[in-house]
């Protein structure tokens, strides 16, 4: 439902489908949004961090990336959507622009 919509809409939807590691979600989003380079990955990671700070995602596990899944030596975080995040996702869902009307 959120494909091609603003990045944080889509991220809420993806985390709404189940717990995920950031290193799994980032490459998926990079492909979807055509942001394949390192800068694109950092941008998406930062969006996820902001959403966690906003209280929409909660951290359930952390580990150091020793296999280069995202970037060797960086911190990998597993997130779960919070009740607040789910309520936000629902609210966005009700207010989405109709697909057919898209420019």
């Amino acid at each position: 439902m959120m494909e091609g919509r603003p990045m944080k809409f889509r991220l809420l939807e993806v985390f709404g489908e189940g717990e995920r590691w950031n290193c799994e979600v980032i490459p998926e989003m990079q492909r979807e949004y055509g942001m394949g380079d390192r800068y694109g990955a950092d941008t998406i990671n930062f969006d996820i961090i902001e959403m966690a700070t906003c209280g929409f995602l909660s951290r359930i596990d952390v580990k150091v990336d020793s296999e280069g899944l995202y970037r060797e030596g960086s911190l990998l975080i597993r997130y779960r959507i919070t009740d607040l995040g789910r309520a936000q996702l629902e609210k966005i869902g009700k207010n989405l622009r109709k697909k057919g009307a898209r420019a």
Partner: peptide
Amino acid sequence: NLESIRGEQGASA
């Protein structure tokens, strides 16, 4: 206190 600006994270940390 600043982990989340809505105080959500604390419970699960």
